[in-house]
């Protein structure tokens, strides 16, 4: 595994007494695609701004490729491309002009800038409209132009803040595939924030779940799912005619794979690591109970994420 490229240590940002980001300690390896997952207002954008050195942390440090983002923002910005959530272009300039402008701010000569802008516009599929004014572009086109804009400085790291907002589903898939392939081909480290799990799931090597300024969990999607679903990922709901007694409850609990059982009058809820509906049904019928209802439900990471979501982050934007 190559070295760590992004490293934060107890990074904290306080806005007017509100802890937008709380003691975030995170490290991201070179070349990986990392997803920062969390609801709106969880502090994702604030974290990204601190990584870029665009906002000063209240405490804690950020190191990107060895540079301190707060003290040496220029060095950091030289190697990091940032696509803000509401990316803005100069509307009365063409796509090509906008890219060349960014390139020249990075000290690339005009001639070279034109050349690489042409190539990048081709990569993101905008070469046909490169001489059209950005004012006429759709949201998806802007986002792709944004990706080209981020890549023109030849970054080691790209940070994308909610890159898929406002794009239609097909566009989202294309866009994510593009990011993934760019990361693979050029060995770019990608940090991506999103509030949509399924998108993060699609392309990220590792994710961090971020709620209310706190990093709740970090890891590979499968590991994370495994860890969070330790209790089991199948819920079995059973309703019987006769009220179940202690004895039968003990018997069900004794089945291998059952980790939790709650009984409420004639209804039982069983959480299990695998689908145990037929052994349980058999057991109940053999014990003389009449089965009225049996249903199973599989938990996904989505449910876990939503569980955290429900953990009180309903008050919207925190910024």
């Amino acid at each position: 595994m190559p070295g760590t490229i992004i490293e934060t240590d107890k990074l904290t940002k306080i806005y007017n007494g509100y802890r937008a980001v709380n003691e975030l300690t995170l490290s991201i390896e070179e070349g990986e695609v990392f997803g920062l997952l969390g609801p709106n207002g969880a502090g994702k954008t604030t974290t990204i701004l601190m990584l870029m050195g665009l906002t000063e942390p209240s405490s804690g440090t950020v190191r990107i490729a060895g540079y301190d983002s707060t003290r040496e923002p220029l060095q950091v910005k030289r190697i990091v491309g940032y696509l803000p959530d509401q990316v803005g272009f100069y509307e009365n300039r063409t796509a090509l002009e906008n890219l060349v402008f960014t390139a020249r701010l990075n000290g690339i000569t005009e001639e070279e800038a034109r050349k690489s802008a042409d190539e990048l516009l081709d990569t993101v599929g905008l070469s046909e409209v490169k001489n059209k004014k950005v004012g006429t572009f759709s949201r998806g086109m802007r986002q792709r132009l944004g990706l080209a804009d981020v890549l023109i400085k030849n970054p080691k790291i790209i940070i994308l803040d909610e890159p898929t907002i406002g794009i239609d589903p097909k566009g989202v898939n294309d866009f994510l595939a593009l990011i993934k392939s760019l990361s693979r081909e050029r060995g770019i480290t990608v940090l991506l924030s999103s509030h949509l799990l399924n998108q993060v799931q699609k392309i990220c090597d590792r994710v961090g779940i971020f709620i209310k300024g706190n990093l709740k969990a970090v890891g590979k999607i499968e590991e994370l799912a495994g860890e969070l679903l330790k209790e089991g990922n199948i819920e079995i709901r059973i309703v019987v005619k006769e009220e179940p007694n202690e004895e039968i409850a003990e018997k069900v609990k004794a089945l291998s794979g059952v980790s939790e059982l709650t009984a409420d009058k004639r209804e039982m809820r069983i959480v299990a690591r695998e689908d145990l509906s037929s052994p349980i049904a058999k057991l109940l019928i053999d014990s003389g109970f009449s089965l009225l209802h049996l249903s199973t439900k599989e938990y996904s990471l989505e449910d876990v994420y939503e569980f955290y979501y429900g953990g009180g982050v309903a008050d919207g934007e925190a910024s």
């Binding site: 910005k77 940032y82 803005g88 272009f89 701010l105 990075n106 000290g107 804009d149």
Partner: peptide, 12 residues
């Protein structure tokens, strides 16, 4: 327009 954050993300 959101252009400010894009420009300030450049090494200037």
């Amino acid at each position: 327009r959101g252009t400010i954050s894009r420009v300030l993300a450049q090494p200037i």
